[in-house]
Design a protein around this nucleic acid. Structure first.
Lengths: 197, 197, 197, 197
DNA sequence: AATGAATGAGATTTCATTCAT
DNA sequence: TATGAATGAAATCTCATTCAT
């Protein structure tokens, strides 16, 4: 049985960075403060990250991975033989749940910090891929119209989803989660372009 | 050591600020650089703006006004007796054209700088109002479903439109403007929630 | 009958400078602010004063003159044939009254600004002269001890008087004016060194 | 680029600040200059003091402590069974000696910088306390008149002492130290208010 | 691996002064 | 006389980064 021990430095730095970035924004935070908030020495920061943008990047990748996994698991859970709307709804619900559970991570990944840093790569294009390939698959299966441009539609939908979730997280009292899901499902290109028998 | 100026200082500062903000982002630009780029002395900046965030705010308000006016003019041009889709399309086309004509202003208003500065007020909520009230009017006219939440739908649509246009402006070669218009019209909540006779 | 007209620029500048210097201290005030507070244009300041220290100097000289005149008038009023203590008391009472009537002027003349400015000459040495010559006169008249050094004693007394009055003006509620007069008269070198029959 | 230091940074900064403040006055000195004069980097200043006023305050407190200690030691040395005048003279001599030995520190503590900075607390009120309590003690012992207000008298005396010493330090050639001591002892309220058998 | 004092480039902002009107 | 926009030197303070320990 492994003894519970203090988390290691990189983990502590990631946690401290997440909290500070979410609260103040990357540009307003400095690496000394992150190190201090992590309970570590100033120099220790540079032992694990080249600079604050590298830390930001690591946080964003971690979040992107987690969100992708959550969506995939949710879709897998409803089964591939279920209907288009069911699958879409499952994916959307997973995203909303993820944002609700990890509000700081979501904000740091998709909010103001999304594009800011020169060092951190683009976040949106990566997350677009999953949706686009799902749309393309449904298209090949003849479930949705061939006229739809999957890449474009995916990007449009994600812009909407991200915008809504960030706005929601600012003050979750503004709307109930299920109303949010409803709005997003309604606006999902897969349903709008569904081939109706 | 004052010098006579052809254009007045605020105008020059706004122009210089727009160019620099669009290229480097507000956090990467300093007020001295803006003043110099405007061909003015360092102190002159502070004669007209309290700090760079005030200048940013002025740019954003100007853009917001321009975009609103362009949309309204376009909708007015097709006439209020025209159909729902025609009006929506006119508004979307106006927005796409505006972004194409003022790419820097659009980016500075809706891009990374949208939320960044403590001093600049929120941009999105202001631009949401126009769409939301249009949706509400159509709703009262019985043209679209009463179930739709205008505020929520407006915000969702605008997140999509803004996201798409910013992405498009990064490299306008990615898509033709009319395909963009098509995608946005399709995703517009007014059409999705249209009451079909 | 002369028409009441707006005071002229120098007068307005002196008044504005007095108020600002008293409230914020010379180093914390700038000439633009003085001009504005005087209801005049920025450039107008330099038409009448070389810089803020020149204005300060003018204020100090005016105050010094006023205080000297008040003292002399008070001493003259009790008459030269009156006793030493009566004359001293008259002079002290005049100083206390002057400070009470012109608290801003007194503070600006003798307070923090007394020594600060490179341009403004020393204030204390000028005001010392009056007391020192009075002491010398009494000495020649055989009323006070010849051992006393008039210059030194005058300076010591004035340091005390000034220190007390500045402290009193900070919050006049701290002591009654007559208790102050009493303390100062008691400490006056003319009485301490009086030749007692 | 850190460098090893012989003396520690705060000590060097205090020494440099003392020299510069004494020569030019707090408002005329900037923190960069202090750091440079201390042979340290600009940023190092802010590692140890929040701003130049904090450094000034530290210098003043140090001086106040030193002066108080010197006075107390001197009075203790003559013994409490010695006469009033002896004790007063010991205290005055200690103050004069302290000022002569630490002219810069004395000037920075009691001179122009005494009141100037918003951040630095009041210096005079603190140094008043010692004298006032000594007067009160003698009063309780019946050595000096009960009519005397110890707080007021202490303040008056200290204004005189401080004013004289500052003036003397400007040019010590003006008077011999013992003449100064004589003038101050003469003007001391304890002697003026002594109850004569 | 961990530390934190030290560094200095650079950002922000102020203000005395000028001069064309 | 009077004005006030314009100027830029200078002051304050921050923070990413280094390196001796």
């Amino acid at each position: 049985m492994p003894r519970p021990r203090l988390e290691d430095a990189p983990t502590r730095l990631l946690a401290a960075g997440l909290a500070l970035f979410a609260r103040q924004g990357c540009e307003r935070v400095n690496s000394n403060a992150i190190a201090r908030a992590a309970g570590l020495g100033i120099g220790t920061f540079y032992l694990h990250f080249a600079n604050k943008y590298a830390l930001l990047r690591a946080l964003q990748l971690r979040t992107l991975d987690g969100l992708r996994a959550a969506r995939q698991a949710a879709v897998a859970a409803v089964g591939s033989e279920s209907g288009l709307e069911e699958q879409v709804r499952a994916s959307v619900e997973a995203a909303v749940a993820f944002a609700a559970e990890h509000p700081e991570a979501y904000r740091v990944c998709f909010g103001r910090e999304r594009t800011a840093p020169a060092h951190a790569g683009p976040v949106v294009s990566e997350s677009t891929r999953g949706i686009a390939s799902a749309l393309a698959a449904w298209q090949r299966a003849g479930v949705i119209e061939p006229a739809l441009d999957p890449a474009l539609a995916a990007r449009a939908y994600l812009a909407m989803e991200t915008g809504m979730l960030l706005w929601w997280l600012e003050d979750p009292g503004r709307t109930a989660a299920d109303k949010l899901v409803e709005t997003l499902v309604r606006g999902h290109p897969a349903l709008a372009a569904q081939v109706r028998g």
